[in-house]
Design a protein around this nucleic acid. Structure first.
Lengths: 161, 161
DNA sequence: AGGTAGATGTTACAACATAACATGTCAAGC
DNA sequence: GCTTGACATGTTATGTTGTAACATCTACCT
């Protein structure tokens, strides 16, 4: 299987949002966790955007479609979603993005395009193995690796070579 | 050579600060860049702390030893020091740390201990190679990789197994 | 001395995140 | 049906991190 970490221009976006929400529902149900309306809306906003978004941008988008949630509420929802592995935080951008592989165990890595802002989530075994090896040599126990690579995605590199 | 990314408890700290400052002087002189008093003090503060520090913590420390610099001045000094490769930013902590290998080309990676807060800077070839390979498979051009691994350093893991 | 480029200072504010406490919601057990 | 308890959300205020806009200073060149 060839993976396409960067979404193609014309994929079935509605279906991809629905799939993400369904996966989240299933995952929470299986764990006895509550995917409340607010949490679901935050996740849906991230899925719709299909890119990393700051908390206040999420608030803005939610405000356009109904009541404006308080910052703290959105942060709490994001905390929950992160704990469930449904959302990741992009540290270097103070932003959040819906997980591309909900349910899978990871160790995700992110390719962040400086041209278009798209964030691709990959889960490369080789990268994790190399980091594990380097850490072992220092006697370091890995808990939470953050790998965020800024650069240019294929289409942006092509557009401005 | 066995590297010790985590500093031993009793290394010659004064010498290690002096060495860092000397390296910075030499590097800037060689490039025709100006290591001004303010920039030097910011770097010295980071070298003394021997760990990652927030900008406002740097300000606090500098205030204890003289005039309190404005936030923006410290951020500008940090920008300069980062551009010269003398300081790195730890994204996940909104903090800064003096570079452990000034002058060397890198691609640094950080092991951040959640026990004691120490940050070890390593420059593992295997990790960079793995990331390069993963990026190539996506047609992604790497510009600025961020690798920050949280976990426990050897002494903290031993102290609380 | 005057010009100029770069560094720093002053002030105000934007953006990101959380503390403390009140209130709402829903299901279990009486 | 009511109470209770656990968890989620709302309200208000504030803390933390970072920058914009513009003034001033400094060191060097001519």
């Amino acid at each position: 299987m060839t993976t396409h970490a960067f979404p193609s221009d014309a994929h079935d976006h509605a279906a991809c949002i629905a799939a993400g929400l369904d996966a989240a529902e299933a995952l929470c149900a299986g764990r006895g966790e509550r995917l409340t309306v607010l949490r679901r809306q935050v996740l849906e906003t991230l899925l719709s955007g299909h890119r990393a978004m700051g908390a206040y941008e999420i608030i803005e988008r939610m405000a356009e479609r109904g009541r404006r949630p308080a910052a703290i509420s959105v942060y709490r929802a994001l905390d929950f979603l992160q704990a469930q592995g449904l959302v990741h935080r992009i540290e270097r951008a103070n932003a959040f993005i819906a997980c591309a592989h909900p349910g899978a165990r990871h160790g995700p890595q992110f390719l962040v395009c400086e041209g278009c802002g798209t964030v691709a989530e990959i889960a490369d075994r080789g990268v994790m193995a190399a980091i594990g090896k380097a850490a072992r040599e220092e006697g370091f126990e890995i808990h939470d690796p953050v790998i965020e690579v800024a650069g240019r995605c294929a289409s942006c590199a092509e557009a401005r070579p």
